[in-house]
Write a protein that binds this DNA or RNA. Structure first.
Lengths: 200, 200
DNA sequence: TCTCGAAGTGGAACGTGTTCCTATCATGGC
DNA sequence: GCCATGATAGGAACACGTTCCACTTCGAGA
């Protein structure tokens, strides 16, 4: 039941194993989407026994959401490194959304796999899901307020609410895109429309 | 491959069978959530062979999303019957959201089953998903504009965009609630906050 | 009424996520 | 160095979604 905690792998060996497993997950997802991420295949490709894989990640959903979290951590770090361009909050948010959306649409299979896992997750994966949600909110909140005079001041309730609403719309758009209900152009248009509605 | 179309069951017998299957689905979902809706159980309870069940609904996801669609159709019809109370668009939308949310929270297992199926759906279920999305948009659009002077006039782009954004936030909130990341109170607060942000 | 194709039945079979078991391996404390 | 204990390997076993097949029943048209 208990598995290796995300942020506290006991040993460097385990940390490295975890990395290998997530790498294999991304590779397989990128190649064939959700259905191609088969637990036996992940175990084989990361050179780990099936039982070990399940010790590290208690389900396929946990595995994929953890992979998503790692991607978001990278994106967050990359965006934190250099300031978001744009004069208004709306400009910056649109810029960030455009970057994220483009990144995803460049790898449709990976996006499909990670998105569907995220959406399908149940209570047992709420910590991982929450982590992803937090990262998304952080990225958007930074875009919304990256020109405030005192960046150390906590974000206001309103800034947080705006970031959350935009995040919600982004997730719904992602879902629509993954299910083939809207193409890249429609997705982007809807996102920008929503940003303009919320940020004014 | 081809299954009985939703809106054109060939015979009354088939229509009645379809109803029985969806009833069984709702019953099982209400009792034990997504995992309790097992195809063999649905077939048995609706007194139909497994192969027949698959002829009517090509997958568990199609089945559950179709059940969700039927629920939304009922809700839509009920709400179309008598006008939404409230003086402002925001009031009416909040009222509708509150009603829908309460209805769902009264049956957590059913909500979990239908929501997760909706979120997990892939391209093969895009028609069913789209139908649900259309119904949701229709319900919200009506709430937004139910006091316009000429209700026959088509909704404006802005009215539609507002309804879509609110629908997106509602879906995301539903997901957060299902995964246990937010309780009923937080969900409602976030929804109302979003409505106020978008409608002004 | 007879016939024929579509629809339904009952159940075996298969794939993949998940669990479980036993033997082996690695590591920290003596 | 040696042991105790937890981690891993390897793989069988199980559950449930899905597919398939052989047979039967139903119903519309000749």
């Amino acid at each position: 039941m208990a598995h290796v905690a995300n942020d506290d792998p006991a040993s460097p060996v385990q940390r490295e194993r975890r990395t290998r497993i997530l790498d294999a997950t991304i590779t397989l997802a990128s190649r064939g989407g959700f259905e191609a991420v088969q637990m036996r295949a992940v175990a084989e490709q990361s050179d780990v026994a099936l039982g070990t894989l399940y010790r590290y990640f208690p389900s396929k959903i946990h595995l994929l959401v953890s992979a998503l979290a790692r991607e978001f951590e990278r994106a967050d770090a990359a965006m934190a490194a250099n300031p978001v361009p744009g004069d208004t909050a709306a400009d910056r948010v649109v810029h960030v959304l455009r970057a994220m959306t483009r990144g995803l649409q460049d790898d449709p299979h990976l996006t499909e796999a990670l998105t569907r896992a995220f959406m399908f997750a149940d209570r047992s994966a709420r910590h991982e899901i929450n982590h992803v949600g937090t990262l998304l909110a952080r990225i958007l909140t930074r875009a919304v307020r990256s020109d405030v005079v005192d960046p150390e001041r906590d974000a206001t309730d309103e800034e947080l609410a705006i970031a959350r609403v935009i995040g919600d719309v982004w997730l719904a758009s992602l879902m629509a895109w993954v299910t083939g209900r809207s193409d890249a152009e429609q997705t982007q248009a809807h996102l920008e429309r929503a940003v303009r509605l919320v940020l004014r």
